[in-house]
Design a protein around this nucleic acid. Sequence first.
DNA 1: TTATAAAGTTAGGCATATCTAATAAAGATA
DNA 2: TATCTTTATTAGATATGCCTAACTTTATAA
Lengths: 153, 153
Amino acid sequence: MTTRNMEDYLEAIWNLQNKKGYVKAKDIAERLEVSRPSVSGMIKKLSENSYILYEKYGGIVLTAKGKKLAQEIKKRHTLLVEFLKIVGVDEQNAQQDACKLEHDVSPETITCLLEFVEFVSLLPESSKWKENFQEYLKKRGLLERRSNKNKKL
Amino acid sequence: MTTRNMEDYLEAIWNLQNKKGYVKAKDIAERLEVSRPSVSGMIKKLSENSYILYEKYGGIVLTAKGKKLAQEIKKRHTLLVEFLKIVGVDEQNAQQDACKLEHDVSPETITCLLEFVEFVSLLPESSKWKENFQEYLKKRGLLERRSNKNKKL
DNA sequence: TTATAAAGTTAGGCATATCTAATAAAGATA
DNA sequence: TATCTTTATTAGATATGCCTAACTTTATAA
């Protein structure tokens, strides 16, 4: 089984590969804000579990298995961000939350969120839903500011 | 700071207190499916951090601090379940997912979800949104079954 | 009241994941 | 090519949280 952490590393590797074309331990460390020895340890583990190909002091390459998992996580992440933005979470918070939630959301919930996002995005221009929701959010914002009640929950 | 695990234990304690009126280590162990020594360890930790009052071989009582946090987590949990059910996740899955997500969702996202749930629940009977969404979900279900494509993502 | 059963604790170990300090290998430059 | 800098690894420690086995305390019941 993969842990939350292995997933984070795999996703980072996938992102780096797409962005820079290659992956170095140093870059993973920076991206995940961990020390290089931590990266070394995880590389060993991912390699042992056949998610990556690796030789000491060499390059890091995702196996088919690793790539598949990394893509899945990335898709979950992207979907979560899309969804969070629809319900009014700002980009930055959406990104941060998605990083954590992507490890825990069950396949069934993913399917439901996917359908929700698709449904909303397919709403015809004539649909009043979006603008009603926007209006509702705006009204809520005003009310809350007025009553000065910052519900932390 | 509280860890994910401390939160799980606090929530369990809160639930037991509400359900049975008192809390025993054994019940926590059963509820969380961990061994009794694990519970002993966490009780010590929660006690050291002033989330509960505890004396060896004695009763477990939440402090004001512990109660407050437990209630917050419980609220997050309840909200997540409500939300997940709206987008079509069945009760059981919603409960399971909420148990995990409740630790990671940021306050801002909680606020947004709360507003979304409220908005949907306040939709007038005349609103076509709900039935359109239901219909959409049904249609998707049929299409997926027909094409036999189980997107696992 | 004393033996037994149930509940809780301690001891000791394992797994995950982190860190710093020290060492080794690779890459860049004079 | 030899040196210096960057990058990566190993060694060794810490923290969280889990487990089983053994022991202690409390509660029950004969």
